[in-house]
């Protein structure tokens, strides 16, 4: 195990930033997000989880897919150059680490590999930071996530009163730490700080099976009444991964891009010709919860929610997924 003083963290980030683009929690107008480190920002590493999830490092809000040019009858396509830039993602929490595994399932398995996602994922060293303290909105333990140790990451860190303890988990992580060994002191027999104990509890046992019988249930009309149909919950969710593909045309050339989209919007399911199979917020909200708690578990064997609490924190009308889970378990079929 290695150790570095909290006050020396910026130096470590600077050192990594020599070779890679380093994303680390920083403040942007009062909001904490994973932003590229240029040595000047205000670090929020260790101060609760970020409001914005890390997903846009792998799955940007907007991403050009290819460019095209039309000249007379011929069309030329220009694909985007492969993304070679190395990334270091510093300080993701255990919940968000699980979210990357869910994103991997979606973008990399079941017979189709999303090239854009794969390149960024492979070029990124992921460094997790254990949680010592949970926010009132955290409920990761409901999904058997350990706030004290993340899954599927390259390096794990823990925060003590004045230092970070650092441990390489994968070869990729080992490699990165080696590059900066002069800043990291080897230590032995360090006691790890106690992991956070989230106070928000919800029992998800049996929820998928219950939902399988609830597609037509009256509950959806009730629970969705207060929903505004905005995209706050889905855009802040680390596992929501829906996107739209559109193009920008300028004369005879243009480009195709994909950008985040949300199942809470009416436009999301509107067909050519105007028909909308999810005509109201009832169907849209049902889809959001079924996707997280039924469809993803059925397809990938894990829940699509990681208990980060972002949606219930920022939903303008307090649609609280833990309450929804509790209510679903109680409704009569």
């Amino acid at each position: 195990m290695l150790k570095i003083k909290q006050t020396e963290m910026p130096q470590l980030l600077n050192a990594w930033a020599q070779k890679s683009r380093v994303f680390v929690p920083q403040d942007r107008g009062g909001v904490s997000a994973f932003l590229p480190w240029d040595g000047k920002g205000t670090l929020t590493l260790g101060k609760g989880n970020t409001l914005e999830p890390p997903k846009d490092i792998f799955f940007p809000r907007t991403e050009t897919m290819y460019r095209y040019q039309v000249a007379e009858a011929a069309t030329t396509l220009e694909t985007m150059p492969p993304q070679k830039e190395q990334h270091v993602l510093v300080g993701i929490r255990s919940c968000d680490a699980r979210s990357l595994e869910i994103m991997d399932d979606v973008f990399l398995t079941k017979g189709y590999e999303d090239e854009f996602y794969r390149q960024k994922r492979e070029n990124t060293v992921v460094i997790a930071l254990a949680c010592n303290e949970a926010l009132p909105t955290c409920f990761c333990t409901a999904f058997e996530i350990d706030p004290g140790r993340a899954e599927g990451v390259d390096v794990q860190m823990w925060m003590t009163s004045d230092s970070y303890l650092v441990e390489a988990i994968t070869d990729k992580g080992e490699e990165l730490l080696k590059q900066t060994s002069e800043l990291l002191t080897p230590v032995e027999n360090e006691t790890l700080p106690d992991a956070a104990k989230p106070t928000l509890k919800v029992d998800v046992e049996g929820i998928t099976e219950k939902l399988q019988q609830m597609f037509e249930h009256l509950y959806w009309a009730e629970v969705s009444r207060k929903c505004l149909g905005c995209g706050a919950c889905t855009y802040l969710c680390p596992t929501c991964h829906c996107f739209d593909i559109q193009s920008e045309n300028r004369g005879s050339s243009g480009f195709k891009f994909r950008c985040w989209d949300s199942c809470m919007f009416s436009e999301y399911t509107r067909m050519a010709g105007g028909h909308n199979p999810r005509p109201s917020k009832k169907e849209r909200m049902r889809n959001r919860f079924l996707h997280k708690l039924q469809y993803i578990p059925e397809r990938y064997g894990k829940y699509g929610c990681v208990g980060c609490g972002r949606c219930l924190d920022r939903c303008p009308v307090n649609v609280d997924i833990t309450r929804v889970i509790r209510e679903i378990k109680e409704v009569t079929l």
Binding site: R28, V31, C230, G231, Y235
Partner: peptide, 25 residues
């Protein structure tokens, strides 16, 4: 920072167009 989540629009009593231009991309 704007996420284009449209929460601001959807909660607004002055925003009451039957179809918003931002739902017509």
């Amino acid at each position: 920072r704007c996420l284009r989540c449209y929460a601001c629009r959807n909660i607004c009593p002055a925003c009451n167009c039957r179809e918003c231009i931002f739902d017509r991309s």
